[in-house]
Amino acid sequence: MRKLKRRIRVKKLIKATIAVIVIFGLLVYLNNASFLARPIDDRPVLAAHRGLSQDYSREGLNNETCTAAQMLPTPHDYLENTIPSMQAAFAAGADLVEFDVHRTTDDYFAVFHDWTVDCRTNGTGVTREHSLASLQSLDIGYGYTSDGGKTYPFRGKGVGMMPSLAEVLDTFPDRNLIIDVKSRDRSEGELLADRLAALPPQRQARIMVYGGDRPVSVIREQLPEVKTIWLRRLKHCLTRYIALGWTGYVPNTCDRSMLLIPVNYARLMWGWPNRFLQRMKKVDTQVFLVGDYRGEGFSQGFDQPDRLKDLPANYAGGIWTDRIDLIAPAIKETG
Protein backbone atom coordinates (compact mmCIF):
# COMPACT_ATOMS: atom_id res chain seq x y z
CA MET A 1 0.00 0.00 0.00
CA ARG A 2 2.79 2.39 0.93
CA LYS A 3 4.54 1.68 -2.35
CA LEU A 4 1.33 2.35 -4.25
CA LYS A 5 0.80 5.69 -2.47
CA ARG A 6 4.40 6.62 -3.13
CA ARG A 7 3.98 5.86 -6.83
CA ILE A 8 0.82 7.95 -6.95
CA ARG A 9 2.61 10.86 -5.27
CA VAL A 10 5.53 10.55 -7.67
CA LYS A 11 3.18 10.53 -10.67
CA LYS A 12 1.35 13.60 -9.37
CA LEU A 13 4.66 15.35 -8.78
CA ILE A 14 5.83 14.50 -12.31
CA LYS A 15 2.55 15.75 -13.79
CA ALA A 16 2.73 18.96 -11.73
CA THR A 17 6.33 19.50 -12.78
CA ILE A 18 5.48 18.97 -16.44
CA ALA A 19 2.53 21.36 -16.11
CA VAL A 20 4.78 24.02 -14.55
CA ILE A 21 7.37 23.57 -17.28
CA VAL A 22 4.73 23.82 -20.02
CA ILE A 23 3.15 26.91 -18.47
CA PHE A 24 6.56 28.50 -17.95
CA GLY A 25 7.54 27.73 -21.55
CA LEU A 26 4.28 29.17 -22.82
CA LEU A 27 4.78 32.38 -20.82
CA VAL A 28 8.34 32.74 -22.12
CA TYR A 29 7.10 32.15 -25.67
CA LEU A 30 4.32 34.72 -25.38
CA ASN A 31 6.66 37.22 -23.74
CA ASN A 32 8.98 36.98 -26.73
CA ALA A 33 6.52 36.33 -29.55
CA SER A 34 7.39 38.66 -32.40
CA PHE A 35 3.96 38.34 -34.03
CA LEU A 36 2.38 39.91 -30.93
CA ALA A 37 4.51 43.04 -31.34
CA ARG A 38 3.99 45.63 -34.06
CA PRO A 39 6.91 46.63 -36.32
CA ILE A 40 8.62 49.80 -35.08
CA ASP A 41 8.31 51.44 -38.51
CA ASP A 42 6.97 50.78 -41.98
CA ARG A 43 10.36 50.12 -43.64
CA PRO A 44 14.03 49.39 -42.83
CA VAL A 45 16.50 52.15 -41.97
CA LEU A 46 19.49 52.17 -44.35
CA ALA A 47 23.02 53.08 -43.29
CA ALA A 48 25.58 53.64 -46.08
CA HIS A 49 29.00 52.55 -44.85
CA ARG A 50 31.57 55.18 -45.99
CA GLY A 51 29.01 56.68 -48.35
CA LEU A 52 29.03 55.36 -51.91
CA SER A 53 32.36 53.68 -52.50
CA GLN A 54 34.34 51.39 -54.75
CA ASP A 55 33.72 47.72 -54.03
CA TYR A 56 36.65 45.43 -53.30
CA SER A 57 37.42 41.72 -53.01
CA ARG A 58 37.15 40.25 -49.50
CA GLU A 59 39.41 37.32 -50.38
CA GLY A 60 42.30 37.07 -47.93
CA LEU A 61 41.11 40.18 -46.10
CA ASN A 62 42.91 41.06 -42.85
CA ASN A 63 43.83 44.18 -40.88
CA GLU A 64 46.82 44.84 -43.14
CA THR A 65 45.02 44.48 -46.48
CA CYS A 66 45.11 47.46 -48.83
CA THR A 67 41.54 47.24 -50.10
CA ALA A 68 42.17 49.89 -52.76
CA ALA A 69 44.50 47.39 -54.43
CA GLN A 70 41.67 44.81 -54.55
CA MET A 71 39.14 47.00 -56.34
CA LEU A 72 36.29 45.25 -58.14
CA PRO A 73 34.44 46.61 -61.18
CA THR A 74 31.93 49.11 -59.74
CA PRO A 75 29.39 51.06 -61.84
CA HIS A 76 30.23 54.52 -60.50
CA ASP A 77 33.21 56.84 -59.93
CA TYR A 78 32.68 57.77 -56.28
CA LEU A 79 35.42 57.37 -53.70
CA GLU A 80 34.60 56.52 -50.11
CA ASN A 81 34.51 59.11 -47.32
CA THR A 82 34.15 62.09 -49.64
CA ILE A 83 31.45 64.74 -49.75
CA PRO A 84 30.28 63.64 -53.24
CA SER A 85 30.09 59.99 -52.12
CA MET A 86 27.96 60.97 -49.12
CA GLN A 87 25.69 63.15 -51.24
CA ALA A 88 25.28 60.26 -53.68
CA ALA A 89 24.50 57.84 -50.84
CA PHE A 90 21.74 60.07 -49.47
CA ALA A 91 20.40 60.59 -52.99
CA ALA A 92 20.33 56.81 -53.50
CA GLY A 93 18.16 56.35 -50.42
CA ALA A 94 20.43 56.21 -47.36
CA ASP A 95 18.91 57.33 -44.06
CA LEU A 96 22.34 57.55 -42.45
CA VAL A 97 25.89 57.80 -43.76
CA GLU A 98 28.87 56.41 -41.86
CA PHE A 99 32.37 57.89 -42.17
CA ASP A 100 35.76 57.59 -40.46
CA VAL A 101 37.77 60.27 -38.68
CA HIS A 102 41.37 60.79 -37.57
CA ARG A 103 42.69 63.60 -35.42
CA THR A 104 45.32 65.69 -37.18
CA THR A 105 48.45 67.28 -35.72
CA ASP A 106 46.73 70.69 -35.74
CA ASP A 107 43.67 69.37 -33.84
CA TYR A 108 41.18 69.01 -36.67
CA PHE A 109 39.49 65.80 -37.76
CA ALA A 110 40.18 64.43 -41.23
CA VAL A 111 37.65 62.09 -42.82
CA PHE A 112 39.61 59.07 -44.01
CA HIS A 113 39.48 55.36 -43.25
CA ASP A 114 43.01 53.98 -43.16
CA TRP A 115 45.46 54.23 -40.26
CA THR A 116 48.17 55.19 -42.77
CA VAL A 117 47.90 57.08 -46.06
CA ASP A 118 50.23 54.74 -47.99
CA CYS A 119 47.54 52.49 -49.47
CA ARG A 120 45.07 54.91 -51.07
CA THR A 121 47.08 58.09 -51.55
CA ASN A 122 50.36 59.38 -52.94
CA GLY A 123 51.51 60.17 -49.40
CA THR A 124 53.25 58.15 -46.69
CA GLY A 125 53.01 57.75 -42.95
CA VAL A 126 50.43 57.50 -40.20
CA THR A 127 47.31 59.50 -40.97
CA ARG A 128 47.08 61.20 -37.56
CA GLU A 129 50.71 62.36 -37.86
CA HIS A 130 49.77 64.78 -40.67
CA SER A 131 48.22 68.22 -40.53
CA LEU A 132 44.83 68.73 -42.12
CA ALA A 133 46.36 70.81 -44.90
CA SER A 134 48.89 68.07 -45.62
CA LEU A 135 46.18 65.42 -45.82
CA GLN A 136 43.94 67.54 -48.01
CA SER A 137 46.77 68.05 -50.49
CA LEU A 138 46.95 64.30 -51.19
CA ASP A 139 45.37 62.40 -54.06
CA ILE A 140 43.03 59.96 -52.29
CA GLY A 141 42.35 58.09 -55.54
CA TYR A 142 46.02 57.38 -56.20
CA GLY A 143 46.21 53.76 -55.03
CA TYR A 144 43.03 52.28 -56.51
CA THR A 145 43.62 49.44 -58.95
CA SER A 146 41.67 46.38 -60.06
CA ASP A 147 44.34 44.71 -62.20
CA GLY A 148 47.30 44.34 -59.90
CA GLY A 149 48.75 47.76 -60.60
CA LYS A 150 48.58 47.80 -64.39
CA THR A 151 46.16 50.71 -64.35
CA TYR A 152 45.08 53.27 -61.74
CA PRO A 153 41.77 54.75 -62.96
CA PHE A 154 41.38 57.31 -60.17
CA ARG A 155 44.87 58.81 -60.11
CA GLY A 156 44.68 62.59 -60.30
CA LYS A 157 40.95 62.57 -59.60
CA GLY A 158 41.11 62.57 -55.82
CA VAL A 159 43.36 65.58 -55.15
CA GLY A 160 41.95 67.74 -52.36
CA MET A 161 38.91 65.51 -51.87
CA MET A 162 39.60 64.43 -48.28
CA PRO A 163 37.09 66.43 -46.21
CA SER A 164 37.29 67.51 -42.60
CA LEU A 165 34.67 66.64 -40.00
CA ALA A 166 33.61 70.28 -39.94
CA GLU A 167 32.99 70.22 -43.70
CA VAL A 168 30.80 67.12 -43.40
CA LEU A 169 28.77 68.63 -40.55
CA ASP A 170 28.35 71.88 -42.47
CA THR A 171 27.37 70.10 -45.69
CA PHE A 172 24.78 67.86 -44.00
CA PRO A 173 23.28 69.98 -41.19
CA ASP A 174 20.01 68.02 -41.03
CA ARG A 175 21.15 64.51 -41.94
CA ASN A 176 21.77 61.46 -39.75
CA LEU A 177 25.49 60.66 -39.50
CA ILE A 178 27.60 57.89 -37.95
CA ILE A 179 31.19 58.70 -36.96
CA ASP A 180 33.80 55.94 -36.65
CA VAL A 181 36.70 56.96 -34.40
CA LYS A 182 39.71 55.02 -35.66
CA SER A 183 42.03 55.45 -32.66
CA ARG A 184 41.91 54.36 -29.01
CA ASP A 185 43.24 57.70 -27.75
CA ARG A 186 41.05 59.17 -25.00
CA SER A 187 42.21 62.69 -25.81
CA GLU A 188 40.80 62.22 -29.31
CA GLY A 189 37.42 61.53 -27.74
CA GLU A 190 37.73 64.66 -25.63
CA LEU A 191 38.47 66.78 -28.71
CA LEU A 192 35.59 65.20 -30.64
CA ALA A 193 33.24 65.73 -27.71
CA ASP A 194 34.26 69.38 -27.66
CA ARG A 195 33.47 69.73 -31.37
CA LEU A 196 30.11 67.97 -31.12
CA ALA A 197 29.14 69.85 -27.96
CA ALA A 198 29.05 73.04 -30.05
CA LEU A 199 26.09 71.59 -31.96
CA PRO A 200 22.53 72.07 -30.65
CA PRO A 201 21.07 69.05 -28.79
CA GLN A 202 18.64 68.25 -31.60
CA ARG A 203 21.58 68.05 -34.01
CA GLN A 204 23.58 65.87 -31.60
CA ALA A 205 20.62 63.49 -31.49
CA ARG A 206 21.10 62.79 -35.21
CA ILE A 207 24.69 61.62 -34.70
CA MET A 208 26.05 58.24 -33.60
CA VAL A 209 29.66 57.51 -32.67
CA TYR A 210 31.45 54.16 -32.46
CA GLY A 211 34.99 52.81 -32.59
CA GLY A 212 37.77 52.77 -29.98
CA ASP A 213 36.55 52.24 -26.42
CA ARG A 214 38.48 55.07 -24.78
CA PRO A 215 37.53 57.94 -27.08
CA VAL A 216 33.95 56.76 -27.59
CA SER A 217 33.39 56.35 -23.84
CA VAL A 218 34.19 60.07 -23.49
CA ILE A 219 31.44 60.89 -25.99
CA ARG A 220 29.05 58.72 -24.00
CA GLU A 221 29.98 60.43 -20.73
CA GLN A 222 29.71 63.99 -22.02
CA LEU A 223 27.00 63.92 -24.73
CA PRO A 224 23.83 62.11 -23.63
CA GLU A 225 22.07 62.87 -26.92
CA VAL A 226 24.58 60.85 -28.95
CA LYS A 227 24.21 57.09 -29.41
CA THR A 228 27.51 55.24 -28.93
CA ILE A 229 29.02 51.75 -28.99
CA TRP A 230 32.41 50.05 -28.89
CA LEU A 231 33.26 46.38 -29.34
CA ARG A 232 33.50 45.29 -25.70
CA ARG A 233 30.25 47.06 -24.84
CA LEU A 234 28.54 45.53 -27.88
CA LYS A 235 29.64 42.01 -26.86
CA HIS A 236 28.48 42.59 -23.27
CA CYS A 237 25.10 43.86 -24.42
CA LEU A 238 24.42 40.97 -26.80
CA THR A 239 25.72 38.13 -24.60
CA ARG A 240 23.74 39.37 -21.57
CA TYR A 241 20.64 39.78 -23.69
CA ILE A 242 20.97 36.27 -25.15
CA ALA A 243 21.29 34.91 -21.60
CA LEU A 244 18.52 36.94 -19.93
CA GLY A 245 16.45 38.60 -22.64
CA TRP A 246 13.77 35.90 -22.43
CA THR A 247 12.55 37.71 -19.31
CA GLY A 248 12.26 41.00 -21.18
CA TYR A 249 15.40 42.28 -19.44
CA VAL A 250 17.59 44.63 -21.48
CA PRO A 251 21.15 45.08 -20.13
CA ASN A 252 22.14 48.67 -19.39
CA THR A 253 25.07 48.25 -21.82
CA CYS A 254 22.45 48.16 -24.58
CA ASP A 255 21.07 51.60 -23.66
CA ARG A 256 21.53 54.57 -26.02
CA SER A 257 23.56 52.53 -28.45
CA MET A 258 23.89 51.36 -32.02
CA LEU A 259 24.04 47.58 -32.35
CA LEU A 260 25.61 45.81 -35.33
CA ILE A 261 24.24 42.26 -35.57
CA PRO A 262 25.31 39.70 -38.21
CA VAL A 263 22.22 38.45 -40.03
CA ASN A 264 23.11 34.81 -39.34
CA TYR A 265 23.09 35.49 -35.58
CA ALA A 266 19.97 37.65 -35.43
CA ARG A 267 17.63 34.80 -34.48
CA LEU A 268 19.52 34.37 -31.22
CA MET A 269 18.01 37.66 -30.06
CA TRP A 270 14.95 36.99 -27.90
CA GLY A 271 11.82 38.34 -29.58
CA TRP A 272 13.45 38.69 -32.98
CA PRO A 273 12.56 40.78 -34.84
CA ASN A 274 9.63 42.93 -33.68
CA ARG A 275 9.75 42.36 -29.92
CA PHE A 276 13.52 42.73 -29.87
CA LEU A 277 13.44 45.94 -31.93
CA GLN A 278 10.72 47.37 -29.69
CA ARG A 279 12.82 46.66 -26.59
CA MET A 280 15.84 48.33 -28.13
CA LYS A 281 13.80 51.33 -29.25
CA LYS A 282 12.56 51.82 -25.67
CA VAL A 283 16.17 52.20 -24.51
CA ASP A 284 16.98 54.58 -27.42
CA THR A 285 19.06 52.06 -29.36
CA GLN A 286 19.27 51.59 -33.13
CA VAL A 287 19.81 48.07 -34.47
CA PHE A 288 21.61 47.41 -37.77
CA LEU A 289 21.89 44.08 -39.56
CA VAL A 290 25.22 43.38 -41.25
CA GLY A 291 26.30 40.45 -43.42
CA ASP A 292 27.03 36.95 -42.17
CA TYR A 293 29.77 36.49 -39.59
CA ARG A 294 31.94 33.44 -40.33
CA GLY A 295 34.45 33.65 -37.49
CA GLU A 296 37.26 35.22 -39.51
CA GLY A 297 37.04 38.53 -37.65
CA PHE A 298 35.15 40.43 -40.35
CA SER A 299 31.50 40.86 -41.19
CA GLN A 300 30.88 42.92 -44.29
CA GLY A 301 27.82 44.98 -44.98
CA PHE A 302 24.47 43.60 -46.07
CA ASP A 303 25.32 44.06 -49.74
CA GLN A 304 23.48 41.52 -51.87
CA PRO A 305 19.91 42.37 -52.89
CA ASP A 306 18.96 38.70 -53.16
CA ARG A 307 19.66 38.33 -49.43
CA LEU A 308 16.74 40.63 -48.67
CA LYS A 309 14.48 37.61 -48.99
CA ASP A 310 16.16 36.26 -45.83
CA LEU A 311 14.85 39.18 -43.79
CA PRO A 312 11.73 38.69 -41.65
CA ALA A 313 8.48 39.97 -43.11
CA ASN A 314 7.93 43.65 -42.33
CA TYR A 315 11.47 44.02 -40.96
CA ALA A 316 11.85 47.65 -39.85
CA GLY A 317 15.24 47.70 -38.16
CA GLY A 318 18.46 49.00 -39.66
CA ILE A 319 20.49 47.60 -42.56
CA TRP A 320 24.20 48.39 -42.77
CA THR A 321 25.47 48.25 -46.33
CA ASP A 322 28.53 48.96 -48.47
CA ARG A 323 26.30 48.98 -51.56
CA ILE A 324 23.55 51.49 -50.91
CA ASP A 325 23.25 51.82 -54.71
CA LEU A 326 22.03 48.20 -54.84
CA ILE A 327 20.19 47.75 -51.55
CA ALA A 328 18.10 50.95 -51.53
CA PRO A 329 16.44 50.29 -54.91
CA ALA A 330 15.85 46.65 -53.95
CA ILE A 331 14.19 47.70 -50.68
CA LYS A 332 11.99 50.11 -52.59
CA GLU A 333 10.94 47.37 -55.02
CA THR A 334 10.09 44.89 -52.27
CA GLY A 335 8.40 47.53 -50.10
Rank of each mutant, 00 (worst) to 15 (best):
P224Y: 11
A316Y: 08
I179F: 04
V250A: 03
N122W: 07
P312N: 08
P39S: 07
T285D: 14
D213M: 13
V226G: 00
L96V: 06
F154S: 09
V181M: 09
W115Y: 12
K227L: 15
I229K: 03
C254T: 02
G271S: 06
I8H: 04
G25C: 06
L234A: 12
N81H: 13
Y144P: 04
G158L: 06
R184M: 14
L231I: 09
G123T: 07
D95I: 04
P200N: 00
H236N: 14
H130T: 07
R233A: 05
L96R: 14
A193D: 08
Q202C: 01
D213S: 15
H76N: 04
A328W: 04
L238E: 08
Y241V: 00
L13H: 11
G93Y: 09
V263Q: 06
P200Q: 01
Q87W: 06
V226W: 10
A133V: 11
G160R: 12
Q222T: 11
V45K: 02
A205I: 05
K5T: 07
K282W: 07
G212T: 09
Y249K: 06
D180W: 12
C237P: 01
G248N: 03
D77P: 03
A313K: 15
L135Y: 12
V20N: 03
T104D: 06
G211C: 03
A243L: 04
G143L: 08
V117M: 11
L238C: 01
I207Y: 06
L268N: 14
R128N: 14
N314V: 02
N122L: 11
L196N: 13
R214L: 15
G158K: 08
Q70N: 15
I21D: 13
Y108D: 12
G335L: 14
N274Y: 05
L238I: 02
F298V: 01
Q70G: 00
L277E: 13
A110C: 11
Y108I: 03
L223M: 09
G93K: 09
I21Y: 15
R128I: 00
G317V: 05
H113R: 10
L326N: 03
G143V: 07
I324N: 00
V226H: 03
L72G: 12
T105P: 02
L192C: 09
D118I: 02
G291C: 08
E188S: 11
L165E: 01
P173A: 00
K12A: 13
R294W: 09
I18H: 11
Y108W: 10
V10N: 07
S164C: 08
R43Q: 10
W272S: 08
P215N: 02
T145W: 03
M258W: 02
A330I: 04
K15C: 10
H102C: 09
A88P: 06
P305I: 14
I178P: 00
N63A: 07
V20Y: 01
R220C: 01
T285R: 10
M258Y: 04
S34G: 06
L231D: 13
V168R: 02
F172K: 10
V117G: 13
Y241W: 05
P215C: 04
L36V: 03
L52Q: 12
D255C: 04
V263T: 10
M86T: 02
M258G: 12
C119A: 06
G25S: 12
A47K: 11
